[in-house]
């Protein structure tokens, strides 16, 4: 194991999180390598350590508050998660808090009005297009000529006659 590999595993080694085999190889390297030993020592000296913890009176005070909060929460029905609309409302409210009120309100109303106008204009335009299509134009159906009987295209008054070149034949 070289210095680079050893140094990348030093913290896990100090924390006892490595397998016995890897741990033994690191121990061997550290005891033989002065520079890795120096780094290992500095890391060990910088290890944060938990102390004795809160004094008993503060712990008991905290436990009492937690117990009381839980009792209160048990007596209160579980809040229903807000709907998508309510979340949107909350978000807009938060935006409004950050922006000065008159300006935020004006921007909000302008956005709503703009969206409504755009929606109306789009509907009107689509309706006009459809009307023009139905009233002013012929709807073209594309189909192979062989699929449509020739008689369908002839007016009712049409009387079949013999072709001219055939009748003029001697």
């Amino acid at each position: 194991m070289n210095c680079r590999e050893t140094q990348s595993l030093l913290v896990a080694w100090q924390d006892g999180e490595l397998s016995p085999g890897t741990s033994a190889r690191i121990s061997e390297h550290v005891s033989a390598c002065p520079s890795c030993r120096e780094i290992e020592m500095r890391l060990r000296a910088a290890t944060p350590m938990a102390g004795p913890g809160l004094p008993n009176d503060l712990r008991r005070l905290a436990w009492d508050r937690i117990d009381r909060a839980l009792e209160l929460a048990r007596a209160t029905p579980t809040p229903v998660p807000p709907s998508a609309l309510e979340r949107l409302g909350g978000h807009l409210g938060a935006v409004n808090e950050r922006v000065p009120l008159p300006f935020g309100a004006v921007v909000g109303y302008a956005m709503v009005l703009g969206l409504a106008l755009a929606w109306g204009a789009s509907n009107w335009w689509t309706a006009n297009l459809l009307r023009a299509e139905v009233e002013g134009r012929r709807i073209v159906v594309e189909a192979p000529a062989s699929d449509v009987p020739a008689a369908q295209f002839r007016p009712a008054s049409y009387a079949p006659t013999a072709p001219e070149n055939e009748s003029s034949a001697p």
């Binding site: 944060p48 938990a50 102390g51 004795p52 913890g53 809160l54 503060l58």
Partner: peptide, 19 residues
Amino acid sequence: DQIENIVGDERQVVILGAM
């Protein structure tokens, strides 16, 4: 004072501050 109680000695207070 309470933080020192929780973390132990003065040295650990320095480490907590460094964090």
